[in-house]
């Protein structure tokens, strides 16, 4: 009885969560320039229109470069920190880890602004790579969260066994550690990629004149006649995000199964 009421509430809550996103495909395929009801009919015109926007293409290219670079950098930095924090005790561990994880709880505007002040202060020209710096910073905590779980579920005696059987530390890492945490690494790459691709504030302030996808979208929101195309673009982006997340979740679960650990739920 009680469970039924809660269940209804939970489902309504999910509807509330998804309702705005559900509008994306509805208006992306709606044959009208104004986003309003009633619907006017089906069209793929807005998707086709995306092909004729050179700035969009540049923004997409920039975003992909940034997202790939940031995810690789953040995952690499994440491997170091996750390994250190799960395997070793050392002085200042709590402080250093807190510092590295700080971007999780710091308003992004403050991260972006303070970084911008330093970059402007030392006379750096804003470009794609300055965005990569910022994105790596905010993606690293997420990478660490995922990778720590992967390293944590790895039995230390597996590595000791390989070392005991004559392998060097490096070959032990390659033959045992890496294959067993690989699902975590892939998962971390995908999550970081998704975060970077969607990130707006840091890109907005640190990209200089280079557009990224969210910055481009933001700039187009001021022009009502661009909105349907943005809805189409949003539809594609959401579909892509869901796809990447599903793949990430698949690898995370496969990793857990491989090491025989118990599933404890989501990404965070």
């Amino acid at each position: 009885m009680k469970g039924q009421g809660l269940r209804l509430y939970a489902i309504l809550y999910l509807v509330f969560l998804y309702a705005p996103i559900a509008l994306l495909p509805i208006f992306a395929f709606n044959d009208a320039t104004i986003i309003s009801f009633p619907l006017r009919g089906f069209t793929t015109e807005w998707f086709a229109a995306l092909a004729d926007l050179p700035t969009l293409h540049l923004a997409l290219k920039n975003s992909l470069i940034i997202a790939v670079s940031s995810s690789v950098l953040a995952t690499s930095l994440g491997i170091f920190a996750a390994r250190a924090s799960t395997r070793y005790e050392f002085p200042g561990k709590g402080g250093l880890m807190g510092l590295i994880m700080l971007p999780l709880v710091l308003p992004e505007v403050i991260v972006a602004m303070s970084l911008l002040m330093v970059l402007l202060g030392i006379g750096v020209n804003l470009a794609i790579w300055t965005v990569i710096l910022g994105h790596t910073l905010i993606c690293t905590p997420f990478a660490i969260a995922i990778l720590s779980a992967a390293f944590q579920s790895l039995d230390k005696s597996l590595e000791e066994a390989a070392y005991d059987l004559g392998e060097s530390k490096l070959s032990t890492f390659r033959l045992i550690t890496l294959p067993l945490v690989m699902p975590g690494i892939i998962s971390s790459l995908l999550i970081s990629f998704t975060i970077s691709l969607d990130e707006f504030i840091i890109a907005f302030f640190l990209a200089g004149s280079e557009p990224t996808l969210p910055v481009y979208i933001y700039s187009q929101l001021r022009f009502p006649k661009q909105i349907p195309a943005i809805m189409a673009l949003g539809t594609i982006l959401v579909a892509l995000s869901v796809l990447l997340l599903t793949i990430a979740e698949y690898f995370r679960r496969r990793g857990l199964k491989k090491t025989g650990a118990k599933d404890t739920g989501g990404f965070l």
Partner: peptide, 28 residues
């Protein structure tokens, strides 16, 4: 020691955070 190994391992990530987070926050 373990402390040395741990500090060595975490240093790239910690340095990154120091340079790109702590230094900017100190600057403002």
């Amino acid at each position: 020691s373990e402390a040395f190994a741990g500090l060595t391992l975490i240093s790239p990530t910690a340095l990154y955070a120091l340079l790109l987070l702590v230094a900017p926050l100190a600057t403002i």
